[in-house]
Design a protein around this nucleic acid. Sequence first.
DNA 1: AAATATAACTTGCAAAAAGCAAGTTAAATA
DNA 2: TATTTAACTTGCTTTTTGCAAGTTATATTT
Lengths: 135, 135
Amino acid sequence: MRRSDCPISNVLDHVGDRWSLLVIRDIALYGKRSFTELLDSAEHVATNVLTDRLRRLEQTGLLTRTRDSGDARKNIYRLTQRGRDLLPILIEMILWSARHDPQTNAPPELVRRAQTDRNALIADLQARIDAVDGR
Amino acid sequence: MRRSDCPISNVLDHVGDRWSLLVIRDIALYGKRSFTELLDSAEHVATNVLTDRLRRLEQTGLLTRTRDSGDARKNIYRLTQRGRDLLPILIEMILWSARHDPQTNAPPELVRRAQTDRNALIADLQARIDAVDGR
DNA sequence: AAATATAACTTGCAAAAAGCAAGTTAAATA
DNA sequence: TATTTAACTTGCTTTTTGCAAGTTATATTT
């Protein structure tokens, strides 16, 4: 499983594929929490791949799965603190694309705050996640 | 090729696999510049995969390939500005592992500077890359 | 000059992962 | 009761990865 003791390699062992960080993104930034919501993204992940990624992310402690108390068919996927702490990596990716690939739709206001007010932005985004999760 | 206009997805389209960012790491942080040096990492990438990743990273403008003037067998792989600008992402990955997986060998001094003196650290790392590349 | 070594691949093949469509099960809604 | 929805699961094909061996051009050693 773990390829080396390198901290970068370690992160890639968790989320170093084309889908895992998109799941994290959808939960962290778009407030998605259920399987069908996560399925419904512009990148069109296959159901079996999404099932697999959710299981792996749960197993490695990046998110939790609970049954919806209101609708027993639904699972609710929430980020753990480990998962929420991937936010800075997502932010840096947004900044990279904003700089080097302006065709992507990085929200200008978010980019501006990330550059001027990084820590406060991250705190705000964390707070928003907590709010959605009722914390 | 591009799955969506999302800036995060865009970065993953470039380096969203288990090897590309390790190549970037080895060039940016360990001063490696040739194929054999890049082969010789703890994670043991296969030659055909390394060849493929170098070609892709070159095609998407993250690095350049030139012949070594001293030894005509050697290629020299250097990061472009696009590639060097991935450094903040690598830094955040190191911080994540330092926090959540202390078994990894994140250099404590680098972690400390990343937390207290982020911009200066990144400038220093950039300068070191430039120095290796003779800029 | 000939033999050996090195750098950077390339090829072939088996195994793993991804992608796609269709099917399944349990729970909710009409 | 019939239909819809949520979350998978299965089967199958394509793509990617991993591993070992082979190739070509250049450099070094004898």
